[in-house]
């Protein structure tokens, strides 16, 4: 089962780097890959909304890399892309190749799906661990006004 496309890059980034690289490079070597925009890597301002008045503010600068390309293989053609909070352009390029390969349903799709599942599991585990450690810092405030009621 495939997760939503917007989660692919994050999931693959959490999977085994060596296998992701090997698979992406194998697809690159047997297909034609054309960049559709210059790969960009740099700092961008991260905008968030604060929760009280909903006003936008800049949290700070984050590293960002993004790649947009077209993959032409004998079995199909697809555009792929990836944007990640990372400064590793090589990784993001490979994620974009896998993104396109999965959209085009190349024969390698099951392998990509396996990596996706592995990445999703790794992410879920990390998130669970974080949630647990965050949970320990949670404090319940009892408001004075509540006691009166």
């Amino acid at each position: 089962m495939r997760p939503n496309r917007e989660d692919w890059a994050a999931a693959l980034a959490a999977a085994d780097k060596g296998r992701v690289a090997a698979l992406a490079d194998r697809i690159r070597d047997r297909a034609q890959v054309d960049l559709l925009a210059p790969p960009r890597e740099g700092l961008m301002l991260m905008q968030l909304r604060e929760s009280v008045a909903g006003a936008a503010f800049h949290l700070g600068e984050i590293p960002m890399a993004r790649v947009h390309l077209r993959l032409t293989a004998p079995e199909g053609v697809a555009e792929g892309g990836a944007a990640l909070m990372s400064d590793d352009l090589a990784l993001v390029t490979r994620l974009a190749i896998l993104d396109a390969a999965l959209v085009a349903d190349l024969p390698e799709a099951p392998e990509i799906e396996a990596l996706l599942a592995e990445g999703m599991a790794a992410r879920a585990e990390t998130q669970a661990r974080r949630a647990l450690s965050l949970d320990r810092t949670k404090v319940d405030f009892q408001l004075l006004s509540e006691e009166d009621e």
Partner: peptide
Amino acid sequence: VDTMGQTREGAEYGFAFLDEDAK
């Protein structure tokens, strides 16, 4: 070198430290 101490690929993008947008 990234923070994990591993040398990355795509090293020419790190030429002159600043990212290309900044330059």
